[in-house]
Amino acid sequence: MSASQSAVRSRAEAVKVSRTFDWMILFTLFFVVLGGYHIHYMLTGGDWDFWTDWKDRRLWVTVAPIVSITFPAAVQACLWWRYRLPFGAIVSVLGLLLGEWINRYLNFWGWTYFPVNFCFPSNLIPGAIVLDGILLLSGSMTLTAVLGGLAYGLIFYPGNWPIIAPLHVPVEYNGMVMTLADLQGYNYVRTGTPEYIRMVEKGTLRTFGKDVAPVSAFFSGFVSIIIYFLWHFFGRWFASTKFISGENI
């Protein structure tokens, strides 16, 4: 091609072409990240995210932030560090939540008839806003990892509290004290129910709240810091534009 030739007829056309590509790129990025993030999240923290009786005060609070901070960190590593776009975390989380809500409604409810108030997804938006906000204000990957990662873990339970609180009130059923979410689970027995009882409903500090949730949130925030660092560098690698020789493969 000749360097002197132009690909467009006018500046106006150049602007139009540029904007059109912006939309096509954003659409593709959104849905491909959605797909990768969703399969990652559903297979590392999915069971806690699927059902209200798995949304306990200890393991849900611990697991969900740790496994969900991954893709936001990686996408930030590309969108902020290359383009100064401060929405890497929120665009990832919105993608994940869109995929989850469509699924919970059309498939969990629409195909297998679990009521939506039993299988709605966790809310990850507050943590994503905090991550993007800290990165925007500080421009620092380290500060975003340390402060943002910790905040991401800490804010998860309060961010979900207004939704889950009504289902964590104690009820007595057949002489047993349990939460309303537990009662939902007993009425909708699933093939994973025995595993749920073994994994979730145990522990010396099992209570209706009190100290367990904050301790779990701090632990989750601590691990989220490490995971953020790790996935930031994953993101940088995935964002590389390297070409390799065909002879090497």
Binding site: V33, I39, L43, V75, C78, F234, F238
Partner: peptide
Amino acid sequence: GWAALGVLGVVN
């Protein structure tokens, strides 16, 4: 599934 993030490199 992580490999989907390779789309970042394609975009770049």
